[in-house]
């Protein structure tokens, strides 16, 4: 009996100590892809992916450090063990799944084709042979153009960019004819340049986004992410987060985030935080 009590004491001590040592995971993201991840005017890193990461960390009792890395360096960094979790709107693909492990899908997206409003192009003419079609390097938009146009003999000229905004700038400057990109960021771009850009078509790719970790999940992170996502969905926090982040001006989201984030970071209450964020965004949008 005494022995068991001692063992119990050690167990508790162990739990307390491990809590004190603060388990920490590094989250890699490319913070130039609003509304999934970007940097606010005040230099804060925020976005849908990053808030999901922060909320799950609170629920599952670990700490995260967010590191901003060029998009096509994130998977190599995860493989090399420099980064523990990739959270940057990664589409789950077979090729990627060979080198990393994905969480279950948390977002569905299709690709959109974005052109200048005055170009007169439509979904067919925008993707004809000879057209200059832009995409961000390493993204599924780029892969789609390669696999479904170029590989099938539609000789468009694929122009790759380091970041998505650079592709948009070149589209506006007329150096490319179209940009193939996920739906939410494309809608964001149209909001930025009202009347200048339009989405001429949605390519139903039924892509799904997942968070990713090193192959075999050596640190056992995936089950915790799954459990966290489940809790967020059950409590309604997930829906509030979606309502806050999608379809709203970035300035509004940033202001709401500023106002509510302490509920998450100090108060450690993800559900109240998501409610606050959705509420504030709604108020400020009026």
């Amino acid at each position: 009996m005494a022995l068991r009590r001692v063992a119990m004491a050690f167990l508790i001590l162990g739990v307390v100590l491990s809590g004190a040592a603060a388990e920490k995971f590094i989250v890699g993201t490319d913070a130039s892809w609003a509304p999934f991840e970007w940097v606010s005017a005040k230099g804060q890193m925020l976005g849908f992916d990053l808030d999901v990461m922060r909320m799950i960390a609170v629920l599952e009792g670990y700490e995260i450090e967010i590191q901003d890395i060029a998009f096509d360096s994130i998977i190599p960094a995860v493989i090399a063990g420099k980064v523990d979790i990739g959270a940057s709107g990664f589409t789950i693909t077979a090729a990627r799944a060979e080198v990393v492990d994905f969480s279950s899908p948390y977002w569905s997206s299709d690709q959109t084709v974005l052109v200048r409003a005055d170009s007169g192009l439509n979904i067919v003419t925008a993707l004809m042979p000879g057209r200059k079609v832009a995409a961000q390097r390493g993204t599924t938009g780029a892969f789609w153009v390669e696999d479904n146009l170029i590989a099938k003999g539609v000789a468009v000229e694929l122009v790759l960019y380091e970041t998505y905004p650079e592709a948009i700038m070149d589209l506006l400057a007329g150096r490319v004819d179209a940009v193939v990109q996920d739906q939410a960021p494309s809608e964001q771009a149209v909001r930025q340049y009202p009347g200048k850009l339009i989405i001429v078509g949605v390519i139903k790719t039924y892509e799904e986004f997942g968070f990713l970790v090193a192959k075999g999940d050596p640190k056992g992170i995936l089950p915790r992410i799954e459990r966290g996502m489940k809790k967020l969905k059950e409590t309604g926090a997930w829906d509030n987060l979606v309502a806050a982040y999608f379809g709203n001006p970035l300035g509004v989201i940033e202001a709401a985030w500023e106002a509510c984030i302490s509920i998450l970071e100090v108060g450690k209450d993800p559900v109240a935080y998501a409610a606050c964020l959705a509420q504030k965004v709604k108020e400020l949008s009026k």
Binding site: S32, W33, W38, G43, E166, M169, Q192, Y193
Partner: peptide, 16 residues
């Protein structure tokens, strides 16, 4: 440079 890209990616017209 990264900071400049942050600015451009949240506010496209400010890229240049």
């Amino acid at each position: 440079m990264r900071q400049a890209r942050y600015i451009g990616s949240r506010d496209f017209p400010l890229t240049l």
